[in-house]
Design a protein around this nucleic acid. Sequence first.
DNA 1: ACGGGAGTAGAGGGAGGGCA
DNA 2: TGCCCTCCCTCTACTCCCGT
Length: 286
Amino acid sequence: MDQDPARQLLIEFEQAVLDALASNFGEAEYERLRVRSEDVKHTISQLHQKGQLSQSTIHLGASIGERIEQLKLVMNEHRAMMDELQESTSDEIQSILEKEPMKTTQAPVLSERRDVGLNAVQMRDWFLKNMGYPFPSRNDKVKILKTTNRQGAAKTPVLKYNQVVLWFINTRRRSGWTKFLRRYAQGDKTKMLELVWALETSVGGTHASRSWSSGIGPVSSTKSRDGKKERKITRMTIKEYMPGANERELEKMYMEWNKIVERIRYGVKERVGDWIEEVIGTSSEQ
DNA sequence: ACGGGAGTAGAGGGAGGGCA
DNA sequence: TGCCCTCCCTCTACTCCCGT
């Protein structure tokens, strides 16, 4: 039994989400979970305000979110087959029904620019799996687009290709990834890839335990993702990458890196409890 | 031509203060 | 206590510019 009430609350909450996902996840179940998430959010926020939320509890919350996310992805794989079948049928029906002229491609009016938040789960996931080179090719973007739209079909607005492009541009900049690239890799993306690989091996563990990966993988591959040109990656340790750096400088770099990862995982959200909303919001799409 | 970066506008929402 | 207003922050998306 966990002695920390906040930790206990989070663990019980995770169990409730898992139970719901394992059962027939209907509207009633969603509503119950939503109410419960409000309680959890309220309690966690209060503890945070009182300064009673330990770092390990915050990390527990993060890893619970990660586990729920992974379960969701697995379930979506199974669902994808059915969806594809449905999609091809509905496309056919839609082409028959679409006798109206094509919608205009004009820029949306300002009031439509930020109606509801983007479903950025897939984009965040892709970014975190390719931290060394977070520049998705056209194919990657289309894949992200399809998966996102399949997942959030009814609850979130359709994600457009351009939104994926913009999201990655903004996230690289705002998360601090671009600054990190300039500071520690002199703006050289190949060097950055080497650095992130060095960081990854230095930290150790798996993608699940770290929550991020360089994107290179264990087997040597020098070909860039888009296949346009070769990138020679030298695999070295962090000490080899930064031979002149002392422990303090390395520590500072690790801290900056962790901050970037956190920003990408949860957006630049600072309010405690927002991650719960995000988890509930995305899990309910099952 | 295309993709990415930088600067920026605007919408939405939370926090906090003032007031009845 | 509840309402209103203002300020500030986050996020999306636009425009312009630059590099390939």
